[in-house]
């Protein structure tokens, strides 16, 4: 079930009830007031950006040692300044807000159409898992023909919240999600973690 704006705000107001409480910080109260969308909350673009560039390989293999193939360049763009994203380029950004999810909520990150219509693709249905905590990394690519100017602080996307039914009865556990990205504030590439099935299938 998708939560409406009222339910999302109610979750944020559950002080002391950490099993159900959703935290969005900073939550600038405009988000509380305007009702442009009834079933989501908007988030702002943060200040940290990470670019990927090839070291010497012409092709990147995510399963190989990432340090070998690609290098990352990090930039901090203060509020009031901007960053140009050229056509065909990809950049990792973050949300200005820190999100703390209870273990019975999941959210989908959706770009705002005002950006999408100008060629900026802001991930496709990236899910934020229950129990996640930190700023959300945004994978942004420019599919248009002209460069897009990105300004930290702009409302760039929105989150749609869903309830995860299995853990609602009798009550959701108080359990943070064990993720290498937990508590992160910077957009990082992360290392590929091989699953057991991948270890088998890719080595057959």
């Amino acid at each position: 079930m998708v939560l409406n704006r009222k339910s999302i705000l109610a979750r944020m107001g559950l002080k002391g009830d950490w099993k159900r409480r959703l935290v969005v910080e900073p939550f600038l109260s405009e988000n509380r007031d305007h009702d442009s969308s009834d079933a989501s909350i908007d988030f702002h673009l943060g200040n940290r950006f990470t670019f990927l560039r090839s070291r010497h390989a012409v092709q990147h293999d995510p399963l190989a040692d990432p340090v070998h193939d690609v290098a990352t360049t990090e930039r901090f763009v203060p509020l009031g300044q901007d960053l140009s994203l050229e056509p065909g380029h990809v950049v990792l950004g973050t949300t200005l807000e820190w999100f703390r999810f209870p273990s019975d909520l999941i959210a989908y990150v959706i770009g705002r159409s005002i950006w999408g219509r100008r060629g900026l693709l802001l991930v496709t249905a990236q899910a934020v898992h229950p129990g996640s905590s930190g700023t959300i990394t945004l994978e942004m690519s420019n599919l248009g023909d002209v460069a897009v100017r990105l300004r930290p602080g702009t409302l760039i996307g929105q989150l749609f919240f869903h309830r995860v039914e299995e853990v609602q009865e009798p009550e959701p556990p108080l359990r943070p999600r064990k993720s290498p990205f937990a508590g992160a504030t910077r957009p990082i590439l992360g290392e590929y973690r091989w699953s057991e099935s991948e270890k088998l299938l890719l080595n057959l």
Binding site: W18, R21, V23, W98, R100, S133
Partner: peptide, 11 residues
């Protein structure tokens, strides 16, 4: 309490 629950203490 906020830190313990991975929420920024300013919240």
């Amino acid at each position: 309490d906020h830190i313990e629950h991975l929420s920024p203490p300013s919240a």
